[in-house]
Structures are given as structure tokens and as C-alpha cells.
Design a protein around this nucleic acid. Structure first.
Lengths: 119, 119
DNA sequence: TACTCATATCGATCCTCATCAATTTACTTC
DNA sequence: GAAGTAAATTGATGAGGATCGATATGAGTA
């Protein structure tokens, strides 16, 4: 006894209707891959600081030249991190003249929080 | 004009008291490293599915033999992923006899959600 | 048109990580 | 104690990622 590995193969059509109403099935492989992309974007200290610095800025947006110095990283590296955050849907990029301004996508952080609690 | 990179160096002691009360400073390097550890644990599709499967289990806990098959991974790999989730403070491990039972740490997911929104 | 500056992209390097096969550890049972 | 089983650990390998120097793009300016 102990590990009932084979028991769950007997009632495949019942496990969604017989249990507590709050029970939700595990996420799918595709869903997991999708969420992992977002968490990968957050899984770097410098990218977390980028998000935090952009959010803390009083104007709500920062250009790359404002972000290179506090991170102590080269400009190509910062640009690379920013691109990952944009592709993850966390930052918005707007080019005005020579400068590129980055700002938090409204509601993005709350949406990510929902990805965590909704596992 | 455009990028005001040097302006913020003039009032270093004021930026915490002159602005909106909701403004909080950017997180520190150490804080970012700490949070990145948690997000690194979430930045893998198989680990996300592990968390979801453990959470979806009606008993609230699962042993390794219940987790190897749905992930289609070898037993050492699943054990490795589980260890990372335990070290991140997301899963709790309890050994009973030959089996090791893993369960969600109560409140851990909500705490992680706070790490996201609190950036 | 030529020059400057901000940003993005490219290529290379180093390091981390996901995975597996093999082995070890630990508990149970005969 | 010997055999069997669950889980963890080890060592190796291949893929992905973080970083940098060099270069390209593109807008503003003389």
C-alpha cells in the first residue's frame, strides 16, 4: 500500500465531477510552456531590477541610458534584457526620436500574479 | 533634451519624501537575487506542472511515483525538479516509509504573487 | 552630405541547467 | 541477513542563456 499509482486509471471520466467544486485539473503541457516563458523573463536579477526601476520612476517610463548605469551592465546587455521583458508582455517600448522609452504594461504584473495563484 | 540622465543626481535625499505616497524605491540587488531564485524555480514547464499536479491532487500530496508518469520524465529528473521546488520554499517534503510525499507549502503561491506585484 | 549620439543586432565565450544512465541510500519484507 | 523497491545522488552531456566587444541602424544636427 502507500502509493496508489494504478488506481486512478479506473475512473477516467469521473474525476471531474465527483470531487470538491474548488478542485481544478492540473494545467496542460502547452499552458505550462506558456507560463514558463513569463517566469523565465523574471528569473534574472537584472531583469527584476529593470522592472522595478521602470516602475519606480516618477514619469512611469525610462530610456536605456537611464538604466545602463544603475545596473552596471553594458548597453547591449541592457538592451537584450529589455527585449526579453517586452516579448514577455511586461514592458512597453515606445521610440521617440533617438531615444527608446520603456514603461510597464498596465496590469501585466497583476496578470502574472494570477498565473502563480492559478496553478 | 530628452534623456535627463544627470538630473536625478542633484537631490539624493529628497526623492523619498517629496513624491506621491505610493512611490516606493526600486528593489535592491540582494532583493532581486533572492526573488530571482523563486522565479528560476518557476521558469521550467515541468516544474510548473509538478506544482499544478500536486495542488490538483485530492489528498493534497503526491509521491514521486505518481509524478513520474504524467511528466514523461525519468525518476532522477523528477526528483531533481522536486528538490528545486522544495529549496525555493514552494513544496514540502515528508518521508513516510519508503515513499516521499510532496505537498504545497500553505500560502507559498500567494507569497510569490506578492513578490510579483510588489516589484 | 557628413558627423554624432542612442539603441539594436551580431558573433563569440563562458556558465548554468535539464536530462539521463548508473549507482547509492534507505526502508520493507521474507 | 538477503532480496526488493522507492527515492536520492553522482557524473556526463548537450542545449540554452548572460555577457561583452564590435558593428549596424537610425534619427538629429551642422
Amino acid at each position: 500500500m502507500g502509493c496508489m499509482n494504478t488506481a486512478q486509471t479506473l475512473e477516467p471520466a469521473l474525476d471531474a465531477s465527483c470531487c470538491l467544486p474548488s478542485e481544478q485539473p492540473a494545467i496542460s503541457v502547452e499552458d505550462a510552456q506558456q507560463r514558463a516563458l513569463v517566469f523565465k523573463a523574471l528569473a534574472d536579477p537584472n531583469r527584476l531590477r529593470l522592472l522595478s526601476i521602470v516602475k519606480a520612476g516618477e514619469s512611469g517610463e525610462s530610456c536605456v541610458c537611464d538604466l545602463t548605469e544603475p545596473l552596471d551592465l553594458g548597453q547591449p546587455t541592457v538592451s537584450h534584457h529589455l527585449k526579453i521583458l517586452v516579448e514577455a508582455g511586461l514592458l512597453h517600448r515606445e521610440k521617440r526620436g533617438t531615444w527608446a522609452y520603456y514603461s510597464l504594461v498596465p496590469g501585466a504584473l497583476d496578470k502574472v500574479a494570477g498565473l502563480v495563484t492559478g496553478l
